[in-house]
């Protein structure tokens, strides 16, 4: 197990280094610069700005300097938002995205699992059909459509919720639904199909014949054996959802991290592009790593596999 974890960690560090290098070079290769502006800059002013941000040095020197600073934990300051340090910008904007993301993940898992279980238990009955229709709707309507619809009807028309902002617990409801509708549907369908399979397995039949109640069978026996694909999916979902959604954050005016992914590139804000890329990579790697570990914990067969691999 320890070797498994160590191996993964080494792999993560190497990929991170490659990613930093590739992003740095690509970012500098695209046309445009952080100093771009529609009004032609005065040559003197332009020179001062380039010197200030070190953009007048050869690319390889800039790269070396960036790595050296990064090793010290310094991600630099934004070139667009004057004197705001990149790590602070990420830290500040990650908070709202994380809170909203956790709320969306919990909602997705709870609602998705309940729908999936009900659908499997009442396979080919009315509840199954209803749950799957909801799931199809959830998958089919993207958040860019769902969010403004909810905002208009539940916010502006009925005034049940605030149309934007994240100031109280109730403000989490609409963005959470917008973020969770897709994952709910996905989890529900995933769980339903594996569960139907498991419910037909021999050990469930044994349990039934022993006279255990339906509830006990589903929760104690079937669910555990059906969770594996959901756990896998959760790894990706977590990384995707806690790093913010450009669309949902924009519509509900949430001061989250999602918009940095887009605006940093449009602004050619080099330090912020690097910072946000590294941040996302680390989150993605960590959550995949946790999913791998969870895998091993949930499924003893994986543990055996791990041993063989030694």
């Amino acid at each position: 197990m320890l070797r498994f974890i160590l191996g993964k960690l080494v792999f993560m560090v190497v990929s991170l280094f490659l990613l930093i290098t590739a992003t740095f070079m690509l970012m500098n290769a695209i046309p445009g610069s952080p100093l771009q502006s529609e009004k032609a800059p005065n040559p003197a002013v332009q020179k001062n700005l380039e010197a200030y941000y070190g953009l007048d040095k050869p690319l390889i020197v800039q790269y070396g300097k960036y790595l050296a600073n990064l090793a010290k934990g310094d991600m630099g300051i934004s070139m667009k938002k004057k004197f705001q340090s990149v790590d602070k910008m990420i830290k500040q904007s990650f908070g709202p995205s994380l809170r909203l993301g956790i709320s969306a993940i919990i909602t997705s898992v709870l609602v998705g699992c309940i729908l999936g279980i009900l659908a499997a238990m009442y396979h080919r009955k009315f509840i199954d059909n209803l749950a799957m229709i909801l799931a199809v709707i959830g998958l089919a309507i993207p958040s860019i459509v769902l969010a403004p619809i909810m905002q208009y009807f539940l916010g502006t028309k009925l005034r049940w919720f605030e149309v934007a902002g994240l100031n109280g617990p109730m403000d989490y409801v609409l963005p959470t639904i917008a973020l969770a509708s897709g994952p709910i549907a996905f989890i529900a369908r995933l769980l339903r199909s594996t569960m139907i399979e498991v419910l037909n397995a021999d050990f469930i039949k044994t349990a039934k014949s022993k006279g255990l109640s339906g509830y006990v069978i589903v929760v104690k026996h079937a669910l555990r054996n059906s969770m594996l694909p959901v756990v896998t999916y959760l790894g990706y979902l977590t990384a995707g959802i806690i790093t913010g959604s450009v669309v949902v954050e924009k519509i509900f005016a949430i001061p989250g991290i999602g918009k940095h992914f887009v605006t940093s590139v449009i602004d050619r804000d080099y330090p912020l592009i690097m910072g946000i890329t590294i941040f996302y990579a680390v989150i993605l790697m960590l959550s995949r790593f946790l999913a791998d570990v969870a895998y091993v914990l949930v499924d003893p067969r994986m543990r055996a596999g791990g041993k063989v691999a030694k």
């Binding site: 040559p43 003197a44 001062n48 010197a51 941000y53």
Partner: peptide
């Protein structure tokens, strides 16, 4: 001051020797 790296420094180029100072 060139070290301030002000993008709008040119608005002050109307001042005598403003541009000279800004270009170092």
């Amino acid at each position: 001051n060139p070290e301030t790296a002000s993008e709008y420094a040119y608005m002050l180029f109307y001042l005598a020797n403003g541009e000279k100072y800004n270009s170092g």
